[in-house]
């Protein structure tokens, strides 16, 4: 049993290190994109009259930035005992809140294209399912743990039993499935409404909605499907 425990601890430490590397790679990508789009941000949003779109834009832009900066800063702090609980939960909470402006943007796109409040509300509700799922997972199943070994550092880890773990896979299915459904609804609305009006040039509003909407749908479909498949497979 002791050998099995040691193997489990090493596997856990290894998965934390892998996640941190992936997280840092994601942060670098985001930071790079932030820097190259900063001049466009200044021109399009700083100088323009503030609207609802401005609020949504800044929420999207700076919620993600604050998550990464906090995660980066906490990487330099050694948390012992259970001292990581409040800061880690705080970062995870903001990370979950990222989904709110994303859901707002999806709902606005749905409303702008269909002029149907019910449809727009459905897209919004489906898009915020990950918020509910993440909050339940974070505050019900994730508990502080001190991993013994070389680091002996405080970490937050899932403490669910194998039976509950199967339930957590259903959570992931619900969360990613609803996001895929919301994106699918949006792309259907976009294509149904705009394909007949695609004659506009490369710089038209309709062209941007079609091009960026389709790109967004394809990228997120691939990522959400990957997330879903890896979770079910594991």
């Amino acid at each position: 049993a002791r050998a099995a425990e040691i193997v489990a601890i090493i596997a856990e430490e290894d998965s934390i290190v892998s996640y941190n590397y992936c997280s840092m790679a994601g942060f670098v990508l985001y930071l790079y994109d932030y820097l190259i789009t900063f001049p466009a941000e200044a021109i399009c949003f700083w100088k323009a009259r503030p609207t609802g779109a401005t609020v949504l834009f800044f929420l999207t832009r700076y919620t993600t930035m604050s998550v990464f900066l906090l995660e980066f800063a906490f990487g330099f702090v050694t948390f012992t005992g259970t001292s990581c609980v409040i800061p880690t939960r705080f970062v995870n909470f903001i990370e979950t809140m990222q989904y709110l402006p994303w859901a707002g943007f999806s709902a606005l796109r749905a409303y702008a294209l269909s002029r149907n409040r019910l449809l727009s509300m459905m897209v919004f509700v489906l898009s915020i399912v990950p918020v509910a799922v993440n909050l339940v997972e974070e505050f019900v199943f994730v508990k502080p743990a001190v991993l013994p070994g070389t680091s002996s550092m405080c970490t937050l880890d899932g403490t669910e039993s194998p039976q509950v773990s199967i339930g957590c896979v259903s959570f992931t299915i619900a969360s990613r499935g609803s996001l895929i459904a919301a994106d699918a609804m949006l792309i259907v609305i976009t294509w149904a409404k705009l394909t007949r009006r695609r004659g506009g040039d490369g710089g038209s509003f309709v062209h941007v909605l079609l091009r960026d909407g389709t790109l967004y749908f394809i990228c997120l479909l691939v990522l959400n499907s990957l997330h879903l498949s890896f979770n079910i497979a594991s």
Partner: peptide
């Protein structure tokens, strides 16, 4: 869960670029 480490920043990048492009042509 490592996919999330990429999907969240990528989603944020796609949405901000989408909003910037819309604002630029509006």
């Amino acid at each position: 869960s490592n996919v999330i480490a990429f999907s969240e920043p990528l989603t944020a990048i796609l949405i901000t670029r989408f909003m910037l492009n819309l604002q630029a042509v509006n």
